[in-house]
Design a binder for these strands. Structure first.
Lengths: 257, 257
DNA sequence: ACAAAAGTGTTTATAATACACCCATGA
DNA sequence: TCATGGGTGTATTATAAACACTTTTGT
């Protein structure tokens, strides 16, 4: 799933941007029973960062976030929400910036731009990894999924941004369409349970989970899936989108806390 | 509770500020069985706005928010948290700004500053109204509490900012020290219930509320308070701060949803 | 036949809800 | 003595938690 970028010349593309204000995206997918996050490797360095970008002078901030998400993933109409704005004066370590920019042999005006103080608004997005085509940005040559248990060091305060985002979805699991966004169309009850467990970071009882979810009437049951495994084949399910969203709006308490 | 400002001359105090970035505060208090919000009236106009301000070049955004809160209320060590950043390109209506600045006879450089596009981060604060000494800012001459049911029109998107803040505390009542911040040291069970009801916007059963809260063991019971009313005198309570905060951290679900 | 995991059922404990009862108080 | 609201109790229902039983499948 690694995709290489073609060489670009750095131009003055940032002339049209709001200075001092950036966006960082925590793009979350679900794979191998674990949450994964999309991160970028800066050209010729060991620096990893979150996908991010800037806001155009006449652009809504939310629109900019959608644009950035789309340009890194190819996806449209994806769940995306703001969770926090990071405004500490020392959130970017200047040495880190200068060092990396030097390695990347960046032209002066872009380097100057990058050296500003930025206040950055964090957005998180929940995507189906299967549908996503990761694309590196102007600073990077690798754009790749990493499981949260194996994240490398990230530049600046990006690790904290990830942590804040994870905290946020944990608290919002009852209110936001988190589960429907992360699973493929059809899935087994076990898939759903593993996902919930990986978000809440705790084990749940299998029988009780199944009963609780079924009683909510938010799932459609489909044909059984033969897996060639030495046990009963599980049913496949899909979300009944309307009922699922109604449930969230009623804030009834979706799963566990 | 109205306080008039003395005349000030507008100076270049904003030279030291981050351009394009502002802070708006939704300062919430509890009075007459209703949530109240602190708002400002711009000099010589009918314009009402939230208390707000800007961030100094070398200042953390959170520090700026604390500074702004303190300068409007005189309070220190108050609960204050960020809830959303408002970045729509058209969130400020330019005509409104220009009109108001003209009426206020503002000098050119301040007017120019005010006409920028601002991305504004919303903070909310929960205060004991009794302890608060509202002070108008440089643009205003009145700084006053208004119950949320009787808010006047607010400038720009400030009404939406208030709504988002209220939504936020509703969702966070189980996680944030909302109740302890809004009530005076000692209060009756009825006071507490009315506060919770005014946040959740629904009626709760008196007997069940009392039992549920008492079972949590987060209150200290004090002497009864004789009110001169034609019925039994109620107990006074105060929060057992540690137990209350522990309860919130455990996210057990504090009251109702 | 067996192990493994699915689907469902049973039991017990805990919590939510509705509302009933008695008590203290001032008019 | 009466209306009012405070404090507490009880009965009913709903939900959570632990775990047991049966079924289906491939080896």
């Amino acid at each position: 799933m690694r995709i290489k970028n073609t060489p670009v010349k750095y131009d003055f593309y940032f002339k049209n941007l709001i200075p001092g204000q950036s966006i960082d995206c925590v793009i979350i997918g679900y794979q191998n029973e674990e949450l994964n996050i999309l991160i970028l490797n800066w050209k010729g360095t060991k620096v990893w960062s979150l996908p991010g970008g800037f806001i155009q002078l006449d652009e809504d901030m939310n629109t900019a976030a959608i644009r950035i998400l789309n340009s890194r993933t190819g996806l449209r109409n994806i769940f995306l929400d703001q969770f926090y704005t990071f405004g500490a004066n020392n959130r970017r370590n200047d040495d880190e910036v200068i060092q990396s920019l030097k390695i990347m042999n960046m032209n002066t005006s872009l380097a100057e731009w990058m050296k500003q103080r930025f206040i950055s608004t964090g957005y998180f997005s929940l995507v189906d990894i299967e549908k996503c085509i990761p694309k590196p940005d102007i600073l990077s040559e690798i754009c790749d999924w990493k499981p949260i248990s194996e994240l490398p060091d990230l530049i600046f305060d990006h690790k904290q941004i990830v942590e804040k985002a994870l905290e946020h979805i944990q608290k919002q699991i009852n209110y936001l369409p988190i589960l429907i966004s992360l699973l493929p169309k059809k899935f087994t009850m076990k898939d759903l349970q593993k996902l919930v467990e990986s978000i809440l970071q705790k084990k749940l009882d299998r029988g009780n989970f199944q009963k609780k979810i079924l009683k909510m009437q938010i799932l459609n049951r489909h044909e059984k899936q033969m897996q060639g495994k030495a046990h009963k084949a599980p049913f496949l399910y899909s979300f009944h989108k309307k009922k699922y969203l109604d449930h969230l709006n009623k804030c009834i308490g979706f799963v566990y806390r």
